[in-house]
C-alpha cells in the first residue's frame, strides 16, 4: 500500500494529561509521529493538536477511528488534502564573508524568508510556507552552513467549500 504524509487535526478538551493520552495512543498502537503542534482554538477551553505522520491509507483509517474513540477529543479532521498547510522555520546561518551575506540577502528577495536578526558572523531568517517549500529552501541555503534551526511542525486548516 502507498505511504504518504497525512495531517490530522484534533480539537481536544484543554485539560492536564490530554496530550499524554493522545501521544500514548500513538506509541501504543505503533503510529510514528513526524510532527506535532498544540495551540489554542476559536473556542475557549479547547486546544487543537495537529499531527503529521507518514503511513498508508489503512493505518490512517485505523488511527482516525482510535482517536475518535477518545473521550477527550471533540473532533478529528483530516487536513491532508484540500487544505492550507503551513510550517514556520527559524534558521541561523553562518556568514563567512560579505559575498555570502549579499547572496543570502538575495535569497530572501526571491523566497518569502524574512531577516529577523543579524550580526557580523551570522544571520537569522524566518520562513513560513508549506513544508515542501521549506525543504527546498533549506537545500538551497545549506551551502552557507546552518548553525541552528527550529521548525514548529505542521499546522493546517481545511479550505472553504
Amino acid at each position: 500500500m502507498n505511504t504518504q504524509t497525512h495531517i490530522i487535526a484534533m480539537h481536544v478538551i484543554d485539560e492536564p494529561g490530554v496530550l499524554t493520552k493522545i501521544s500514548g495512543l500513538f506509541t501504543r498502537r505503533g503510529f510514528n509521529i513526524d510532527t506535532i503542534t498544540v495551540g489554542k482554538t476559536e473556542t475557549k477551553g479547547t486546544s487543537r493538536i495537529t499531527v503529521s505522520l507518514h503511513c498508508n491509507e489503512k493505518t490512517i483509517e485505523q488511527l482516525e477511528k482510535q482517536l475518535n474513540k477518545m473521550i477527550d477529543i471533540l473532533k478529528v479532521t483530516n487536513v491532508t488534502d484540500n487544505s492550507i498547510v503551513r510550517e514556520l522555520c527559524i534558521i541561523t546561518i553562518n556568514i563567512k564573508n560579505e559575498t555570502a551575506r549579499t547572496e543570502l540577502i538575495n535569497y530572501t528577495k526571491i523566497y518569502p524568508a524574512k531577516i529577523v536578526d543579524m550580526n557580523h558572523t551570522s544571520m537569522t531568517l524566518e520562513f513560513t510556507d508549506q513544508p515542501e517549500n521549506i525543504e527546498e529552501f533549506l537545500k538551497k541555503i545549506q551551502q552557507f552552513g546552518i548553525k541552528e534551526m527550529v521548525r514548529t511542525g505542521i499546522i493546517g486548516i481545511n479550505k472553504n467549500r
Binding site: K58, E61, Q62, K65, Q66, N68, K69
Partner: peptide, 8 residues
C-alpha cells in the same frame, strides 16, 4: 459497536 474494530 466499535468502529475501530472493523477492518482492524
Amino acid at each position: 459497536i466499535d468502529p475501530a474494530e472493523i477492518g482492524k
